[in-house]
Computed example of a mutant assay.
Amino acid sequence: MKPIDVWSHPCFTAVCYTYDELDAVLLREAVIPDEVQLQVYALHSKQIMKLTTTICVLVVAAMLFPAPGFTADDVSEAERSVLLKNYPQLSDGTITKSPIPGLYQAMLDGQIRYISADGRYLIEGDIYDTTNQRNLTESYREVARQASIDRIGDSGMIVFSPEEVKHTVTVFTDIDCGYCRKLHREISAYNNLGIEVRYMFFPRSGPDTLSWFKAEKVWCADDRNLALTQAKGGANINSENCGPTPVAQHYALGHEIGIRGTPAIITLGGGLIPGYVPAKELLKQLEQ
């Protein structure tokens, strides 16, 4: 089986095969670990086009570099201009160096991507530090998630808080989601364990749907906490229109940070815990 392309780098090699040639047994037997498979993108006429007929496997050196605290200031104007020329949709401030020399890290379409220095290759996937057993990309995602949520602040959420706060989580919720309702029926159990729950809206059906309108009605109620509890219990909330609500902002932010379903629990450090988690189990995870 011969590769159709090989992209060499001092720290790794990306080897590309056609899907037909890539033997699934090779992957099952872990000759090439699943976690280092990446999809490589090519840039043509300033449009990102997925190479749907190939798979590229990242063969990483035995030890990846540790995750230094790279910032946008570490990227020179010359380096930045090359990347922005090829990817004008990038936000200037999100371009940083990655843990692997020669690759740059950037936020593109709400996701962390890696780009070669010449802008030709765009890589989707996670970088793992095999020495420290750490997902470096997820560490960066956590920082980005928390920074995004911090910009909303408590005033833009519906907060159920205990007398003594030991832990804080932000929960993306859909009023009509069954497991979201189950979580909320146990809100006192979370609060009794010292867990503060901050709600943000993520109506899975999208804008201009019944779930979306219910979220807006809850936000416009005089007592939002009571209205949310009643709505999750199946009651109709008949509040007056109060003008713009944060529902659209919550929904867009959820997509931006990778929310795909509800409930989605975000820890204070930016970690993502998908789905319903009972209060005692959540406390256990938060205290690990």
Results as ranks from 00 to 15, higher is better:
F70T: 02
S161P: 03
R120F: 15
T54Q: 10
E216Y: 03
G243S: 02
A72L: 10
H255P: 12
P203Q: 01
I175H: 02
S81Y: 07
L282N: 13
D174R: 02
N238A: 11
D118A: 01
F213I: 11
N191C: 03
K217F: 04
I187A: 07
E21N: 10
M107H: 10
E163G: 15
C242R: 06
Y140W: 14
V197D: 00
M63C: 14
D222R: 15
K217Q: 09
D154I: 14
D73M: 13
I123V: 09
L136R: 05
H44A: 11
N238V: 11
S239G: 01
H184F: 10
A189M: 08
L122N: 07
R120T: 15
E35F: 14
K217S: 05
L51A: 10
Y87F: 06
F202P: 06
T209G: 04
Q133G: 02
C177P: 00
W7T: 13
F12H: 06
V31E: 12
A106F: 05
Y121S: 04
I152E: 01
L282Q: 09
P68R: 12
T53E: 15
H44N: 15
M157K: 01
I175V: 10
T173S: 08
L122M: 03
L228M: 09
Y17M: 03
K217M: 12
D126F: 06
M1H: 14
I237N: 00
Y121T: 15
T53Q: 14
N236T: 12
A14K: 13
H167G: 07
S98L: 06
H255W: 10
Y121V: 14
E281Y: 06
M1L: 03
I237Y: 02
D150S: 08
Q133V: 14
I149A: 04
A235W: 07
V59K: 01
V143L: 12
D109A: 14
V82E: 02
L64H: 13
E186F: 00
L272E: 12
T209M: 01
A189K: 14
G194C: 05
L122A: 01
Q288H: 13
Y251F: 12
G69C: 11
I112R: 03
F160H: 07
R224S: 02
K182H: 08
L226H: 15
L286P: 10
S239R: 00
I100T: 14
G194E: 02
I95Q: 05
C220M: 01
S8D: 11
G153L: 01
R224V: 08
Y17R: 00
